[in-house]
């Protein structure tokens, strides 16, 4: 069963496609940003730079 969109079909389809693209880009942006930040944090911690709270937990007897 197909839905007949009439003469406004190009406008409707373009609008839905644009909205879906923007939402997908937003979700992708947030996911990629999270991966980048966790990777940079991991690199810094690997090179021995840690937060004071993490250091005190390690240094504690």
């Amino acid at each position: 069963m197909t839905m007949s969109l009439g003469p406004y079909a190009p406008f409707i389809v373009t609008s839905y496609a644009a909205a879906a693209l923007v939402v997908a880009l937003l979700i992708g942006w947030v996911i990629i940003d999270y991966r980048n930040q966790t990777e940079r944090l991991r690199q810094l911690e690997r090179s021995g730079i840690t937060r004071r709270s993490a250091r005190s937990a390690v240094d504690a007897p």
Binding site: V30, D33, Y34, Q37, T38, R40, L41, L44, E45, I49, T50, R51
Partner: peptide
């Protein structure tokens, strides 16, 4: 909420740098 978590991580990276 996800962007706020990213911002907290970004600030943590900045302070470590």
């Amino acid at each position: 909420l996800a962007a706020m978590r990213n911002e907290i991580l970004r600030r943590r990276v900045r302070s470590l740098q």
